[in-house]
């Protein structure tokens, strides 16, 4: 029960964070130099469009009233009109969000699966030649710039070997019955491969090093020694006891990493022309498409906050000291 209460208070906390983000976004775009209406109205909009937006966002009203209207609009998922696309921001973002989430999750799942296994293995082989060569290698992958890594993969696997397409999510002119049909098609997977691999290589170091150092700590715990005194097999000792315990913080870091990755995606999405949130955000900012930029910021913030909540949930699910308090 106290567990439920803790979760509720955590959710409340995150709701407050979300509210703060929303408010900062409001102020940031309202108090920018120049015309305060610039946040929503592009001079090239037709007069009717301009008037509709004036009314919808109450742009002629005092700031506090605008703020209330803005909150009300947000609750209804109303984010304004994109200057560039002349379409509702919310709609535009909803078509990009799945691309970003698929890229993020597929790369992180690969990165974490590999990182956890390799980290546990390296901890177990502590001090061996394998470990001594692997660690500098992992550190190198952490130091490589993502765009550079992306370009190298592109040059080798796309331009040179021709195994994978160079960018986008689908062949030119291809159309699918539904988004589901697109995302489950073989072509989509071949488009996804290189950007996901780039991100996976870039991200695998964190879970790997985290898993390894957790394992090394856990291996010193009394319960691991006891498992040996019990005569349990090496597998039981290393996997069932050491790895299972070392995994807890790594799993939590997964959810947090999703949040970070959304920001890291910007570069990779640009290199591979991947129509995702990050690339859209950069484009929107450089094109002064304020409503779109504001919406993209907000959406990324929401995902980050949600993943934090999931991280907490995950931890309490995996750690009986919390779930059975």
């Amino acid at each position: 029960m106290s567990h439920l209460k803790a979760m509720a208070s955590r959710a409340l906390q995150l709701a407050l964070v979300l509210w703060a983000v929303v408010t900062i976004l409001f102020l940031m775009f309202r108090l920018m130099p120049g015309n305060p209406m610039a946040a929503y109205i592009d001079p090239t909009f037709t007069v009717e469009q301009q008037e509709a937006l004036m009314a919808q966002f109450g742009l002629d009203k005092p700031l506090w009233e605008q703020y209330l209207i803005y909150l009300g609009n947000l609750l209804q998922g109303e984010l304004g009109q994109s200057f560039r696309y002349r379409e509702p921001v919310a709609e535009r973002l909803m078509t990009l969000l799945p691309n970003t989430l698929i890229l993020t999750f597929s790369s992180l799942i690969v990165a974490y699966t590999f990182g956890i296994l390799a980290g546990a293995y390296l901890a177990w082989r502590r001090g061996s030649v394998v470990e001594n060569t692997a660690i500098p290698l992992v550190l190198t992958t952490r130091a490589m710039p993502e765009f550079w890594l992306g370009m190298v993969l592109l040059a080798v696997f796309s331009f040179w070997l021709g195994w994978f397409p160079a960018g986008g999510t689908r062949p030119a002119g291809a159309s699918y019955d539904s988004l589901w049909a697109l995302y489950t098609s073989r072509e989509f997977l071949s488009y996804l491969a290189l950007p996901a691999l780039t991100l996976a290589i870039y991200s695998q170091g964190l879970p790997l090093l985290l898993m390894r150092s957790n394992m090394l700590d856990v291996m010193k715990e009394d319960f691991v020694t006891m498992a040996r005194i019990k005569g349990l097999s090496n597998w039981s000792v290393v996997v069932r006891h050491a790895a299972r315990n070392a995994l807890l913080p790594v799993m939590t870091s997964f959810a947090i990493a999703v949040g970070y990755q959304l920001q890291g995606n910007v570069v990779v999405e640009s290199v591979f022309s991947w129509p995702g949130l990050g690339r859209e955000l950069v484009n929107a900012v450089s094109a002064s498409d304020y409503p779109l930029a504001q919406g993209a910021f907000l959406m990324i913030a929401v995902v980050v906050i949600l993943m934090n909540l999931i991280a907490d949930l995950l931890y309490s699910l995996l750690d009986p000291r919390i779930s059975h308090a």
């Binding site: 715990e221 319960f223 006891m226 005194i229 315990n245 995996l318």
Partner: peptide, 15 residues
Amino acid sequence: FIPQSAMNSLDPVYT
């Protein structure tokens, strides 16, 4: 073997 601290010698994540 019975260790000094049963707390640390029992694995916290298993019943």
